[in-house]
Design a protein around this nucleic acid. Structure first.
Lengths: 158, 158
DNA sequence: TCAATATCATTCATATCTAAATGATATTGA
DNA sequence: TCAATATCATTTAGATATGAATGATATTGA
């Protein structure tokens, strides 16, 4: 049996645990958390995103994102803008201050990504991305398999 | 430039985001969180681990682990045992109840791992593990590269 | 031996995650 | 049109992450 530490989730956690601190030291220089940076990173690419779309783009869960945006707003880096055509939507909009941060942070982050490339060959990076992408694309198969296994096991149905 | 959503950290987050819910539904059936299960999973393999070792085994940071163990202790699944030869150490020990949970949870978790295998071929799984392992092993190179880049940039030295 | 230093577990403050619930607004079908 | 349902943002409660600090105990070197 494979040691627990070599299970896929634990390996993914370990990779993230090795890589993220290198980015966080940069973010903290600008008074940002990782999640705050993720929001800015998306807005720099596409401003005035509704909160739900921002949640999907950044992988930050809705309830967490509300607080992240609160703190970005308090730092005067973004503001909330209630949509007029669909009043349920709240668009998150960069302030000039928030926009100005891009050119300061981005080169520092890019430098880490550049250093990262050294860890594997181009071919290996390509395959790694390929496999991770396949897992993401095919993960929906797990729902069905589990459901089938549960039914076969004779669990209680609604 | 690669889209932000396809950066390595975001891809790792997405894979975890797809996989972990399948495990969490099992844990919650037994009143466990993912972290509580990780602690039990390690103790089932090696009981009476000191807290610091448990933190390294489970990748749960020390300050978080204190709380996780508190709640496992409240659920009467583990207990704390102060070491006599080095009184700084606290060993975490399974109770009979905690030990008994193993045979109930493990087959359910194994079933998910088995379903997981379908997502990639054996060869692809092998390579994926290989690449993740290489990143973990070589991550220390990033420290040095960053330090070199900072020095070359002429940052302030102590 | 004793003072400086290191290690281990814990605490603290703040931020985030997870799951469930809520209020406001839109949409839909009878 | 209106009641049922869906969607969006938010709130809540409990658990965990992060970074810094602290108290207790060990270890080390002068």
């Amino acid at each position: 049996m494979r040691p627990f530490q070599d299970s896929l989730p634990m390996m993914l956690y370990r990779v993230l645990g090795e890589l993220l601190p290198h980015f966080r030291v940069i973010f903290s220089e600008f008074g940002l958390t990782e999640q705050q940076w993720r929001v800015l990173r998306v807005l720099w690419q596409r401003d005035a995103r509704p909160l739900l779309a921002l949640s999907e783009d950044t992988l930050i869960p809705g309830p967490s994102l509300v607080g992240v945006v609160d703190r970005l707003q308090r730092a005067e880096l973004v503001r909330r803008q209630r949509s007029s055509d669909d009043r349920r939507l709240v668009r998150i909009v960069l302030t000039p201050k928030g926009r100005g941060l891009e050119e300061q942070v981005t080169p520092r982050v890019d430098a880490v990504y550049l250093a990262l490339e050294e860890l594997l060959s181009t071919r290996e990076w390509g395959l790694l991305r390929d496999y991770l992408g396949k897992i993401i694309d095919r993960a929906h198969l797990l729902d069905q398999q589990n459901r089938a296994a549960t039914q076969k096991g004779g669990a209680d149905e609604p």
